[in-house]
Each structure stands twice: as structure tokens, then as C-alpha cells.
């Protein structure tokens, strides 16, 4: 009789241990920001500011989403750059985002990133660096569309133990801008 509860407890513990990593990834669609994004858990949403040399001293409003799971910090920043002066400079704003990501550490990879295909393709850049001062490994995607700069970052903290975690590439690549239909 004592064996049964222990087995049940062990099974429950096993399910709880295995469950979150696999089951909690889910897509959240943000109609106000024009993006659908997958997360491994519910992120916090805060209002912030995006300020760079090209954006200017005033900065622009930004929505910042973040959650930490298993020593990986998942973050998405959506900077509001819908004014024509910014849209006209969107290529430079994206390029500056990539440059800043490269500057964060020692470059490991740098490649084209594309969301959707064909004439509606949104081209961006995906950068991976080892952060300075052994602060971990970060993968950053920079994309600009719909008058917004989307910065997707996944930082694997040293305590995670696996700098090349597959969760990172899953995060930086799981988004869509075509949100007017269901995901396929």
C-alpha cells in the first residue's frame, strides 16, 4: 500500500519535471504590435524606451517582454518607429541593432534571418556572441517591419551549462508577422 503512493508521487514528480519544458511553449499573438511570438512561459510586459544614436536622444517608446526559464533569459523588445522619419531610415536602424548586438561580445555566428517568404518576406539578421565577462551566450535577431523594430534575444546564462541550447534558436526563430490567419 505504501508502494502505490510512492510510485504515484514519483510519477507526478516526473511529469512535473518533464512537462514544463515541452508543454509550456505556446504562441502569443500581439495584434497591437503586429507579431505572433512563441514563449516557453508567460512573459512580463513592461513599457520602456529604445534610445540609440540613430534613433536620437529623445528615444522612442518600446514594449519589452521577458521571461527566464532554466537559466535562459528570453526577451523581445518592440520599438515604435512608425514616424516617417524613422521608416525612411529603417535599414540603418536595423543595421545599428545588428551592430550593437555584435558589439556585445565575441562574434560566433552572423547570418541572414527571414520571416515569411516571397514578396512579403521580412529580412533581418541573426547574431550570436559570447558575452563579455563570461556572462553567457546571446543570440539576437533584428528585424524591421510595420514601422517597428523587433529585437529578439535569448541569453544562455553560464549556470545553464549548455551554451548552444536548442531552446535559443527555437526562440529567436519562432515568430510571424502575418497574424491575420492561423499559424500553419
Amino acid at each position: 500500500m505504501r508502494l502505490v503512493p510512492m510510485t504515484l508521487a514519483a510519477m507526478t514528480a516526473l511529469i512535473l519535471a518533464c512537462g514544463p519544458a515541452a508543454a509550456q511553449w505556446h504562441e502569443v499573438v500581439y495584434p497591437d504590435l503586429g507579431v505572433g511570438k512563441e514563449w516557453p512561459a508567460e512573459p512580463t510586459r513592461t513599457k520602456g524606451e529604445y534610445k540609440t544614436e540613430v534613433v536620437g536622444k529623445e528615444g522612442v517608446p518600446a514594449d519589452i517582454f521577458q521571461v527566464e526559464v532554466d537559466m535562459i533569459v528570453y526577451k523581445m523588445t518592440v520599438a515604435d518607429l512608425q514616424k516617417l522619419e524613422f521608416v525612411a531610415r529603417s535599414a540603418s536602424l536595423m543595421g545599428e541593432c545588428v551592430f550593437d548586438a555584435e558589439e556585445a561580445g565575441t562574434p560566433l555566428a552572423n547570418m541572414t534571418n527571414r520571416v515569411e517568404g516571397g514578396i512579403n518576406a521580412v529580412y533581418g539578421r541573426l547574431v550570436s556572441v559570447d558575452l563579455a565577462d563570461n556572462k553567457g551566450r546571446r543570440q539576437t535577431a533584428c528585424l524591421f517591419t510595420k514601422g517597428r523594430l523587433y529585437i529578439i534575444e535569448a541569453t544562455v546564462l553560464p549556470e545553464h551549462g549548455q551554451p548552444n541550447s536548442s531552446q535559443v534558436i527555437r526562440f529567436t526563430n519562432s515568430l510571424r508577422f502575418a497574424i491575420d490567419h492561423d499559424y500553419h
Partner: peptide, 29 residues
């Protein structure tokens, strides 16, 4: 096509990368 200009630049880079064996790839300003 200003609203797609960042993607147009990214597409230009992608096509250049696709022409051969990549040797270097860096920010230019």
C-alpha cells in the same frame, strides 16, 4: 517601398551571400 526598406537591404545581403562561398560578413557604416 520605404516601409520595406530594411527587408530590401536584407534581401540584397542574402542574394550577395548566395553568390558563392562566404568569406567575411560585417557591418559597414
Amino acid at each position: 517601398k520605404l516601409d520595406a526598406s530594411a527587408s530590401i537591404m536584407g534581401e540584397c545581403v542574402f542574394m550577395a551571400e548566395d553568390e558563392g562561398e562566404p568569406l567575411a560578413n560585417m557591418t559597414t557604416r
